[in-house]
Structure formats: structure tokens, C-alpha cells
Design a binder for these strands. Structure first.
Length: 1040
RNA sequence: GGGCGCUUAGCUCAGCGGUAGAGCAUCGCCUUCACACGGCGAGGGUCGUAGGUUCGAAACCUACAGCGCCCACCA
């Protein structure tokens, strides 16, 4: 705990001027770990459990930003739940990643020693892999620590450690006993490069591969039905050496007579039967005759089974043609393709070729074109396992977030094929099956002494290993000690959330569901949250081959782990990929700095403050204090709600906005009045509120930015000498949802509005009050509401003055400020601000400014008035919407009138005498001397001037509106013309009808499973054009 | 071939039935005693196109276009 004391030694009230993440982040992780904050207590049943298992990264890999995202989101959930009183447990671990790891080590072996794994032999090679694992396995842990992930390291597991291997054998044996694991010789996807079988999922389909459909003729042994040959087409000419049938459709008249007869293989002389198969053959495609290669094509394999055909293997596991391939034996399969084409052409049997874009299956790992080959493999019979996993989701026992993934999951599960689980690799769980010389199979948990069938003791274990995903599929319970019934399982299974990328829904999520339900009798997780993919700033997928993989450690070093975490969270919106740009991370680093400095400000202003945790100075709170507390509660509510719904971006943005733009930009500035003032009660209140807001901000932010919040928590805690604050923020309590003091928000809104208005005038007119005009330049503020007026009098006006750098603020309780010819004005709901600028104000500029404001107000007004004048709106819209609009219209009208008045004054009516206003004008003479009431002619004159100005304004506005409406009118006219034309010719109608009809027909045909012809006539969409056109015009007119 | 997603300000994206938003970038002002990793102000959008539903559509429906992803054994 040396780190702690280091922090403690920091002199009170002093923080470095800027936040240095390197120094702070280096300190805390070990402290947390040593204090045991990361450990979930399996015996604790007093608190609700919240558990997550970390998707295990490849043990020899290195984390990339996708992992950083996973770690960040899960850590956010864990820390948030932890602070909210849950017994949290986050289980880390790594995956042995069969093919990936083996290939890496093989490559290394080749590079350094120029040896293959076969040169070393199985045992020696595996030793190398284990050594590799030991060397690189720890890197992942370090990366997670740098990110601040509070993983329960005491529970760290590896898919090939003893316990998990035991679970794997247990599952294999049980499934085998239940008849759900079987061994069979059938076609599998084979990678000739990796030299292993693959599951369907490991096949990548290359869309639109430029294939060629090449045709050639098989001569009939004995010509019949007027035919001497049958022409077939293929994308893989080399497989013709393995053809053992020609298939035609049973109802195809062209070939009816030939079924049962034979063709002669032009290259090997074999006789091949012609069979009828309705499933394989579409008589309308090509020539209607199909060559059948049962040993090298999945469809043909089925045909072979149906018709009892010979399975002739002509391509070997090495991708070279076998001896059975006759003239091309020994050639590589792609070479053989060329050679076969040449030979057949030579024989005069080529019958043309055409381009044929096709999907090509490639190995996910090596990108090699896969070869369907016959071999003995182990399979999991998946349908009986899938069914309960489907039901669990249907019944809502597990739900997907975002919801759309439910469909993806369901579609795959409902169309699932048996899972090939054996791999011809060395690195992995060796299959617990033993063979005796007679070929009997013994499946057992431990090495058996004798064959279970014949009793012989010469047994040989199956050399293959299991698919990596077989062990990963058990992860949620194998890591918790299964098959033993451990306390950990009882407490933390099922896990609360599975958080991972959507790219492994099938590979992993689906399999965990099936295995979890089957062996635990309960779903492995209640919620599956699928995060977006992280891409680079150009939107490209990060991959080693592209070289755009970013090591999170480099980012944390540069910007800080907190900044990276916050960025990832802020960008994690549902249903969209994350494009990570450096500037964005830097922006959030600035945010950390902002928080740091807000705290620094607090430390400088807290002398004497003791936080007892209670609320001793409630009465002294100013409206500003109450306002920020209301805003805090609102932020808390929104943050918690967002987290509950996994809307990480909303949660992050809410806290960000509160801390920076409300706490820092507004409250801290406002609080300076109290903190620097001479009222001790107010000062104490401001201190308490500030401390409370900062403390709450740290807690709210802690899941996102654990390091800086922990550091600041400690610093502030020591400063306020609070016994109520736990040592570490990790023992704190997350703020809870509560009622927002809306009255406090409302009451303070005018103050904020007035400040905005004054700042707006300054900014717009580029006025530096102090510099250009001296300190006495008065700023007049008139408010219509007595309560607001009282509030300002009671001290809030001082805040206004401070925040706007105005020294001479004149407050009036009135509908409007005193008139003065050369001035500038700002208007808001319930107040008006005026700055006299005799000799300085640029009348032209000010008029322009007011015009701009007027145009804006007027646009709004027109819109809402238009709505309100629509009887349908008033009648059908919800009452509160209408009410809201009515109130808004009143506000806008008032504002407009004030602006028009002001403008009139600006442009010449230098002695306006009567205020045109729609509000109650109840001047309070004790505060503001009522303006002297002018009399006689002058009144008349001034009034006329005002009226004239208003009239001029109206004309101008009308012109403006006309201009605005012009495009609409033009459009409407166009529509009329178009409609006339359409009526005359009926063209538009016909077009629409045809289009609609075609679409409908297309759908109908598709539904019927038939091909679609464009000739289909249609009766749909026969709406008379005249009506359509009229309606259109009417609508446009209405809009106007 | 089937399915899913996306198209909103210069860029990256929120919003998903009631007055078009954020961050960054841009422009102007401010070196004010927490922070220039800062403050204040401003400009910038016919919300992909065309129809429809609705009092009201960026949002819901339909079609189309472009981009992206997933699944799939049509020779």
C-alpha cells in the first residue's frame, strides 16, 4: 500500500496544474488488486450476484481494440453493479485457439529452425507450444490491467488447463453415451493447406468469384433416342475424373429413354450410369443433365447415397489428384483442371464455356480454396441440442441486445447442421476415444486399459483433437468448476450478461447456449449484449494483414486508459460499427483534464469545509445551488437508465455533458459568487454542494474512468476530512435514481436566460464592455415575473453581473426596459435586456442583428400559428401538445413585438413613448422609477412612428415570406401541370399500375417458388390519376 | 439466392411521431486569479430519392438508388 501513502503525502489543496495519466494510472491497479476488490465471493448470498465471464482471447495473441472494447464495456458493467451493491464476479481466462496457435508456432519453428512439426514429432512439438504459451500468455493479463479491468484473477482459467480438460472429456463421454456424438465417414470441408477438416462455420464464402461454367460431352455407350452424347456443364472440370453417374430429371422427355443406359468416360474408359433424380436436377438449367461426383461435391454426395453410386476419390488430402485420376494423377487440382480441359478439347468433346460468378468456399484461416473430401470424423448431432436453446430465447430466458440479433440467432439455429468437431491437429484436447486393432471404439473419461467391446489391451488413442469451440462452448460453467457442484457455480451461474462481438454468435454464443442448457439445465446467461465492431478511422476492419491493428497499450500510454475507455463507451451506439479516430480520444483526454481542474478549483475553495455526509446547510442554498442539484439528479437518472439498457453512449454523454457543461461551465462559475462572498452560510452551502456534485460525478464516472476518479476521490476525501467517505471509491455507492427538483430548474431558468442574452449581445456585437466602454456602462434587465425579480434582487443578479462581466446592472420589474435610442436589446421568455450604447452602437449592425432575430422568431411563429389554425390539429392532437404550442405562440408574439418596437426605435423614432406590449405591465416604483409619461402631440407622433415602423416591418416580412414560399408555389404549379398532362395521356397512371403490379406479381411468384417473368400483367394500383393529382395539389396548397 | 444494417451539418455520429442535436473541424472575441487540454459567441442541414399513412413524418409503411455485413451445396 505504498502507493496509497504516496497519494496521501500530496500537500493539501494542491494538485498538479494538468492531469498526468501516466503517473496516476500506474499507481492504482495494484492497490485495488491487493485489497481484493476484484474478487467475487461465492459464499456471499446477502448481496445479489452479478457475474460475467470474459470471452477468452487467444492465449498467444495480443489484445487489439476489439478486446479493449470488450474489456471496457464489461468493466463498466461490473464496476457499476459493484458500486450499486452487487456481489460481482468477472472471470478472466484464455483460449488455446487450436489452429491459430498451432500455425503461429509452426511458422516460428520454420523460420528459426527450418523444421516442420513432423520433424519434431507430436510430443516435442506440443512442448514447444506450451513453452510459447507460457512466454506470451501473460501479455494479455498485462494489457487488461493497463485498461483497469477489475477481473477476478484468482479465478483465471485456460481452456487446456486440468480442470477444463476434465470438463471437456466429461462432456464428450456423456454426449457420446446419449448418442449425440458419433463418428462417420462423409464429406467434410477440407483445407489442403492446414490439412484438417473444418466445420461449416469455418468456411468463408467468397462472393462473386469469377468462375467459369464449362461444358463437355459424355459419349453414350449405345446411342438412343436420337442422341449420341450427353452434354454436361461444370465449374470444376477436374472432378469429372470422379464422376460415377449422370443425372437427369425423371420427367425430362429429352432423356427419358436414356435413364438406365450408360455413358463412357472419355479419359478412363469407365462406364457410367445415367440416373433420374428429381431433387438434384433442374431440367430448365443448362442442358438438364448433371455430372455426378459423389466423393467431391455435397449435392452429388446425397445423390450417390440415394442411388447407391460408387464414391470415387480422385483428389487427395494434399490437394493433388490421386492415382484414380488416371491421366492427371499426381497433378495439383488446379493444374489438373487445365489438363482435363485440354484433353477433352483434344478429343473434340468441349462444348463451350461461359462466365459464371459463383461463391467459393475458402478456409477462414489460410484462405485456401476448400475441398469437399470423404473422411472419418466425429460429429455432434446438433438438432436435439439446438431445440431447447431456441426455446430458451423464445421464452425470453435469454434475450439479445440489440434485439435484432435474435433473428440471426434463430435463423441459424433452426437450420443447423451437425457439427464436425474433430480436427487433424496436435494442439488441443485429444479426442477421448481409443481404437483396438479390430476397429472397436472405446470412449472414456480416462485412458482405458482394455477395449470395451473385445477386451483387448492394445489400444491406440484417436490422434485428432477437438475443435477449439468445443471447449469454449463450455466456458460459462467449466470455468466455475463443473462437473463438480461448486459454490461458485451455485452463486454465479447463470451469468448475468454475455458481452461479446456479433461475429461469434454462431461460433460461440449459440454453442454456449446449447451446452449450458444441456449440462446445467439452465441458460448460461440472461442477456447477450452484442457490441459493434471496432474499425479504423476509414471504416476498415482491423486486421493484421492490413496492418491497421492498434495495440491498446499504445493508446493508453498516449492518451490514458480512462480516455480510451471513455471514448469506446461514448462511441458504442447500438447497431453501428465504431470508427475510432485519434482526435476523439484526445477530446476525452481533455475531459479528464477538465474534471481534474474542476477538482483543483474545489480544493482551492474548500478551506474549513468538513463533509459530514448530512445536509446541515440546506437553508443556505441559493437558487443556483438548488439548480445544480436538480441537474445532477437528472443526470444520475439518465445515466442509470442508459446503463440499464446497455446504452453506453448515452450514459457516457450524459455524464460528460453534466460535468463539463453544467457543473464546470455553469455551476462553478456561478458558485464563485458564494465562495468569494462574505456570507459564511452561503459559502458553506456552496462548498457542500460543490463537494457533493464532484463526489457524485466521480461515482457516476468511475465505471468509465476508474483511475482518475479514484485519484480525485482520494484527494478530495482527505481535503474534506470526511469519515463518511470510504478509503477507495470502489467502496462507494453509485448515485441512485430519484425525483428531479423541477421547480428549482424552472425558477433558475430566467437567470441563465438573462446571462445568455447578455453574452449573446456581447458576442454578436463584439462588444468588450469593460475595455471599450468603461466599467460604468449600464446593462438594463427587465423581468416580468415578481418571483424572478425577487430572486435576482436577493443576489442572483450579482451572479449575472459576474458571468457577463457587467459592473452596472440595472434591474427592473417591468414588461420592458427603459427606452433609449442608441441601444441594443436581447429578449427572452419573461425578460428583456438592454444595453445603451450611445455613440458606439452601429445602427446598421444592430438593425441587422434584430432582423435576424425577428426572422427566426417569425419563422417559428408562422409554423406554430399555422398548426393552431388547423382545426384538425386542435381537434385531434393531444391536449398537452396543443397547450404547449399555444403557450409558445404567446411567448413568440411577445418577443416579436418587443423586437419590432426596438427596431423602430433604432431606425429613427428617437423618442418612443408608449410601450406596445401584450404582457401585464406592473412596474414597481420602489425598484425602478417608472418612465415619465409623455403627453399630447408627442405621444401621437411617437405612436404613429411606431405604427409605421410596424407596418413597414409587416411589409418586409410579407416579402420575406413570399420569397420563402416561392419554391413551394413553384412546386405546386409544376404538380398541377404534371397532373394535367397525366390526365390527358394516362401515362403516369399506367406506369404506376405496371410498376406496382410487377412488384406484386414478383412477390407472389416468389412465394409460389416459381421463377419470375416480366410479362405478368397486373391489376393493382388502378387509382385514378386525377384524384392523385388533385390530392397532391391540395396538399401542396395546404402546406403553403 | 435469402436475411440484416446503414444513408441526418465539412467529418464522425446521436435522435426514431410533436420547435433538427452532439463531438470534432471552421469563423469572431477573450491570455479573467480551476483548466488555452480553457471560456464566450457565431456560421453551417430541402434529415438518400419517390410515393403513402397521419392533424403532424428525419422518425411509421412501400418502392427505388447507393454503401456495408451475415448466411447459402444450384451443376
Amino acid at each position: 500500500m505504498e502507493e496509497q501513502s504516496e497519494a496521501t503525502q500530496q500537500p493539501q489543496g494542491e494538485l498538479a496544474k494538468g492531469y498526468e495519466h501516466r503517473e496516476v494510472e500506474a499507481r492504482w491497479y495494484r492497490v485495488w488488486k491487493e485489497r481484493g476488490y476484484f474478487h467475487g465471493d461465492e459464499r456471499d448470498r446477502t448481496r445479489p450476484a452479478f457475474s460475467i465471464v470474459l470471452p477468452p482471447p487467444n492465449v498467444t495473441g495480443s489484445l487489439h481494440l476489439g478486446h479493449a472494447l470488450t474489456a471496457t464495456l464489461q468493466d463498466i458493467l461490473i464496476r457499476w453493479k459493484r458500486l450499486s451493491g452487487f456481489n460481482t464476479m468477472w472471470l478472466p481466462g484464455t483460449d488455446h485457439a487450436g489452429i491459430a496457435t498451432q500455425m503461429v508456432v509452426e511458422k516460428e519453428l520454420k523460420r528459426t529452425e527450418k523444421k516442420s512439426r513432423h520433424d519434431l514429432g507430436r510430443a516435442a512439438f506440443l512442448e514447444r507450444v506450451w513453452a510459447w504459451k507460457e512466454q506470451y500468455g501473460s501479455r494479455i493479463g498485462q494489457q487488461h490491467e493497463a485498461l483497469g479491468a477489475c477481473l477476478d484473477w484468482e479465478r483465471e482459467r485456460f481452456t487446456m488447463d486440468e480442470g477444463l480438460s476434465r470438463a471437456v472429456r466429461e462432456v464428450f463421454v456423456r454426449l457420446h453415451e446419449e448418442g449425440l456424438i458419433y463418428r462417420e465417414k462423409k464429406l467434410i470441408n477440407w483445407c489442403t493447406d492446414c490439412r484438417t477438416a473444418l466445420s461449416d462455420l469455418e468456411v468463408e464464402h467468397e462472393e462473386g468469384h469469377a468462375g467459369e461454367l464449362w461444358s463437355f460431352a459424355y459419349p453414350l455407350v449405345s446411342p438412343a433416342g436420337g442422341l449420341a452424347e450427353i452434354v454436361v456443364a461444370t465449374t470444376r472440370p477436374e472432378t469429372m475424373l470422379g464422376d460415377t453417374a449422370i443425372a437427369v430429371h425423371p420427367e425430362d422427355g429429352r432423356y427419358a429413354a436414356l435413364v438406365g443406359s450408360k455413358v463412357r468416360h472419355p479419359l478412363t474408359g469407365r462406364e457410367i450410369p445415367i440416373v433420374a433424380d428429381a431433387i438434384l436436377v433442374d431440367p430448365k438449367f443448362g442442358t438438364g443433365a448433371v455430372k455426378v461426383t459423389p466423393a467431391h461435391d455435397f449435392n452429388d454426395f446425397e445423390v450417390g447415397r440415394r442411388h447407391g453410386l460408387e464414391f470415387l476419390t480422385v483428389i487427395g488430402f494434399d490437394g493433388k489428384m490421386t492415382a484414380a485420376a488416371g491421366p492427371v494423377a499426381g497433378l495439383d487440382r488446379f493444374e489438373a483442371r487445365k489438363e482435363v480441359k485440354r484433353l477433352l478439347a483434344e478429343l473434340g468433346l468441349e462444348r463451350g464455356a461461359k462466365a459464371n460468378p459463383m461463391a467459393l468456399g475458402r478456409c477462414q484461416r489460410s484462405q485456401t480454396v476448400l475441398e469437399p473430401l470423404l473422411s472419418d470424423q466425429w460429429y455432434v448431432k446438433i438438432a436435439p441440442l439446438a431445440e431447447p436453446a431456441i426455446r430458451a430465447v423464445e421464452e425470453g430466458r435469454t434475450r439479445f441486445v440489440p434485439e435484432q440479433w435474435t433473428n440471426t440467432y434463430m435463423a441459424w439455429m433452426r437450420n443447423i447442421h451437425d457439427w464436425c468437431i474433430s480436427r487433424q491437429l496436435w494442439w488441443g484436447h485429444q479426442i477421448p476415444a481409443w481404437y483396438c486393432p479390430d476397429g472397436h471404439v472405446t470412449v472414456a473419461r480416462e485412458t482405458p486399459v482394455a477395449c470395451s467391446t473385445c477386451g483387448t489391451t492394445t489400444l491406440r488413442q484417436d490422434e485428432d483433437v477437438l475443435d477449439t469451440w468445443f471447449s469454449s462452448g463450455l466456458w460459462p460453467f467449466s470455468t466455475m468448476g463443473w462437473p463438480d457442484r461448486t459454490e461458485t457455480l451455485k452463486t454465479f451461474y447463470p451469468t448475468s450478461v454475455m458481452e461479446t462481438g456479433h461475429d461469434i454468435i454462431f461460433f460461440w454464443v449459440a454453442r454456449m447456449m446449447m451446452m449450458g442448457i444441456h449440462f446445467m439445465g439452465e441458460v448460461p446467461f440472461k442477456t447477450v449484449y452484442l457490441h459493434p465492431m471496432v474499425r479504423d478511422s476509414k471504416g476498415q476492419k482491423m486486421s493484421k494483414t492490413k496492418g491497421n491493428v492498434i495495440d491498446p497499450l499504445l493508446v493508453t500510454e498516449k492518451h490514458g486508459a480512462d480516455a480510451l475507455r471513455f471514448t469506446l463507451a461514448a462511441l458504442t451506439a447500438q447497431g453501428r460499427d465504431i470508427k475510432l479516430a485519434d482526435e476523439r480520444i484526445d477530446g476525452y483526454r481533455a475531459f479528464a483534464n477538465k474534471l481534474w481542474n474542476a477538482s483543483r478549483f474545489a480544493l482551492m475553495n474548500l478551506e474549513g469545509h468538513v463533509d459530514g455526509g448530512g445536509d446541515p446547510i440546506g437553508q443556505a442554498r441559493t437558487p443556483a445551488d438548488r439548480w445544480i442539484l436538480a441537474r445532477l439528479q437528472r443526470a444520475v437518472n439518465e445515466t442509470v437508465e442508459a446503463l440499464e439498457a446497455f446504452r453506453f453512449n448515452d450514459a457516457a454523454n450524459t455524464v460528460y455533458h453534466f460535468v463539463w457543461h453544467e457543473l464546470c461551465d455553469w455551476y462553478i462559475e456561478l458558485s464563485k459568487e458564494s465562495l468569494n462572498g462574505d456570507d459564511p452560510a452561503r459559502k458553506a452551502a456552496a462548498q457542500a454542494v460543490l463537494v457533493h456534485c464532484l463526489k457524485s460525478s466521480y461515482l457516476l464516472l468511475h465505471p468509465f474512468m476508474p483511475f482518475i476518479t479514484e485519484e480525485l476521490w482520494g484527494v478530495l476525501r482527505r481535503r474534506v476530512a470526511a469519515s463518511a467517505w470510504p478509503d477507495s471509491i470502489m467502496e462507494g455507492r453509485y448515485p441512485t435514481v430519484g425525483l428531479v427538483d423541477e421547480a428549482a430548474e424552472r425558477a433558475f431558468a430566467p437567470v441563465l436566460g438573462i446571462i445568455d442574452a447578455i453574452r449573446n449581445i456581447r458576442g454578436e456585437m463584439n462588444i468588450a464592455f469593460k475595455v471599450a466602454l468603461g466599467q460604468e456602462t449600464p446593462v438594463h434587465v427587465a423581468v416580468t415575473d415578481a418571483a424572478t425579480h425577487a430572486l435576482l434582487l436577493a443576489g442572483e443578479s450579482k451572479r449575472v453581473a459576474r458571468l457577463t462581466h457587467v459592473e452596472n446592472l440595472q434591474l427592473h420589474l417591468a414588461a420592458a426596459t427603459p427606452r433609449m435610442p442608441q441601444s441594443t436589446v436581447g429578449v427572452g421568455v419573461g425578460f428583456e435586456v438592454r444595453v445603451p450604447l450611445a455613440g458606439v452602437v452601429d445602427v446598421g449592425a444592430e438593425t441587422a442583428r434584430i432582423d435576424k432575430e425577428l426572422a427566426r422568431v417569425d419563422a417559428d411563429l408562422r409554423l406554430i400559428e399555422g398548426k393552431l389554425s388547423n382545426p384538425n390539429f386542435v381537434a385531434r392532437a393531444p391536449a398537452e401538445v396543443v397547450e404547449k404550442d399555444r403557450a409558445r405562440v404567446e411567448e413568440l408574439r411577445t418577443t416579436k413585438l418587443k423586437l419590432i418596437n426596438h427596431r423602430a426605435v433604432m431606425s429613427g423614432a428617437d423618442q418612443p413613448t408608449e410601450e406596445k406590449t401584450m404582457e401585464n405591465n406592473t412596474p414597481n416604483p420602489s425598484v425602478t422609477p417608472a418612465p415619465a409619461q409623455p403627453v399630447g402631440e408627442k405621444v401621437e407622433q411617437a405612436a404613429t412612428a411606431v405604427v409605421e415602423a410596424v407596418k413597414a416591418e409587416a411589409v418586409k416580412l410579407e416579402q420575406q415570406m413570399e420569397k420563402r414560399a416561392a419554391p413551394t408555389i413553384r412546386k405546386a404549379r409544376k404538380a398541377v401541370a404534371k397532373a394535367r398532362k397525366a390526365v390527358k395521356k394516362g401515362v403516369a397512371n399506367a406506369r404506376r399500375a405496371v410498376k406496382k403490379g410487377v412488384a406484386g406479381a414478383k412477390k407472389a411468384y416468389k412465394k409460389a417458388g416459381k421463377s419470375f417473368s416480366r410479362k405478368a400483367p397486373s391489376k393493382a394500383g388502378k387509382r385514378p390519376v386525377k384524384k392523385v393529382a388533385k390530392k397532391k395539389v391540395a396538399k401542396k396548397a395546404k402546406k403553403k
